[in-house]
């Protein structure tokens, strides 16, 4: 094993283990609120993993967008439904579960067959470019990627209009 047990490796292992556990928790918890909390935790840890990759800008954006906005919305909706009728969210067993688990594991195995051999030939290279610098991110976003940026902004606009429309039908 060329991978040495450095402090960094230990920290990474801790973060990654936490993230993996949280990911399992998302799927395994029967209670949707707990699933959501696991996901929040997972995303929060992912933010730290992004920090470890030296993309600080995205790490903090991850926390702002996912933990701060998206997951709050999720929890809000879950609790709203829970408030409405809590019995609805109970899970029932059916035959797709074992099949799904089997296939999921198969997928993991397939992908691992590509990843595991990579452990053997690890050579670390120094990071040359500052990916996490907000200036660099901004400049790239508004020059090379300005068209996708505009497209995504348009998509967000459509999303806003759509959600307002969905919510507004009640008014009429």
């Amino acid at each position: 094993m060329p991978v040495k047990l450095t402090l960094e490796m230990v920290i990474f292992a801790a973060l990654a283990g936490a993230a993996a556990l949280a990911a399992v928790g998302v799927v395994a918890f029967r209670n949707a609120t707990r699933s959501a909390l696991c996901l929040v935790f997972n995303f929060f840890v992912l933010g730290f993993l992004y920090f470890s990759l030296q993309v600080e800008m995205l790490g903090i954006t991850q926390v702002v967008v996912y933990t701060g906005a998206i997951m709050v919305l999720f929890i809000f909706v879950i609790m709203l439904l829970n408030l409405g009728s809590s019995h609805l969210l109970a899970e029932k067993f059916d035959g797709k579960k074992p099949v799904g688990i089997f296939f999921g594991i198969a997928l993991a195995v397939l992908l691992s067959s590509q990843i595991v051999p990579m452990f053997a030939r690890t050579e670390s290279k120094p990071l040359v470019y500052p990916l996490g610098d907000s200036k660099v991110v901004g400049q790239t976003l508004f020059t090379s990627y300005v068209f996708p940026f505009e497209a995504v902004s348009f998509l967000l606009l459509v999303g806003i209009v759509g959600s307002i429309l969905l919510a507004k039908r009640r008014m009429s």
Partner: peptide, 11 residues
């Protein structure tokens, strides 16, 4: 951004 991120966790 950090301030914004953390304060949004407050809820």
């Amino acid at each position: 951004l950090y301030v914004l991120a953390i304060s949004s966790l407050g809820a």
